Amino acid sequence: MTSASPEHYPVNLHKAYHAHIYFDEQSVQHVTGLCEHIATEFGLKVGRIHQKLVGPHRRWSVQILFSHRDFEAFIPWLDAERGDLDVLVHGVTGDEYKDHTDHAYWLGQPVELDLSIFEKPR
């Protein structure tokens, strides 16, 4: 298991966040268990467990919605429990391009995103 390095660890700077957990056929059971725990223990909104590509994500993923109030408890727990899963954590500011670039942090290895779907700032 790899943890985020201190210089790349998520920082609580925004009011709202998404965490996108990436998985594959071998890890779908692991991510399903994580999502059940996140919903029941943290009370966070868990999106669909997409076994297809959705949005800018080039791997299967599930989205978790949370706020700055949940950040300090949820992020360290997620980092400890994710195993080998890679997770994108980003602020939700209304600028989707910046949210997925400037406001993005990774737990695990960065996953290439299809940023062409977002309007790039001028």
Rank of each mutant, 00 (worst) to 15 (best):
S5N: 15
S5W: 01
S5Q: 15
H8T: 07
H8N: 13
V11G: 01
V11H: 09
N12H: 05
H14C: 14
H14S: 08
H14V: 09
K15F: 12
K15Q: 10
K15H: 08
A16W: 15
I21P: 00
Y22L: 12
Q26E: 13
S27W: 04
V31M: 04
V31E: 01
V31A: 13
L34K: 02
L34S: 02
C35H: 03
I38P: 00
T40Q: 11
T40W: 04
E41G: 15
E41V: 06
E41K: 08
F42R: 05
G43V: 14
L44N: 11
K45Y: 06
V46Q: 01
G47Y: 03
H50K: 05
Q51T: 11
G55A: 08
G55I: 06
P56D: 14
P56M: 04
P56N: 13
H57S: 09
R58C: 10
R59D: 03
Q63N: 06
I64C: 11
L65A: 10
L65S: 15
F66N: 03
R69T: 12
R69S: 05
D70I: 06
F71T: 15
F74L: 12
I75E: 00
P76M: 07
W77K: 03
W77G: 01
L78C: 04
A80Y: 04
E81M: 09
E81D: 07
G83V: 03
G83S: 06
D84I: 12
D84Y: 08
L85M: 15
D86W: 08
V87H: 08
V87Q: 11
L88P: 09
L88Y: 08
V89K: 00
G94Y: 15
D95G: 10
D95F: 07
Y97M: 06
Y97F: 11
D99Q: 02
D99Y: 02
D99K: 04
H100Q: 07
T101S: 05
W106E: 01
W106H: 02
W106V: 02
L107A: 08
Q109V: 06
P110W: 11
V111I: 05
V111C: 15
D114A: 13
F118V: 05
E119M: 10
K120V: 07
P121K: 09
R122M: 01
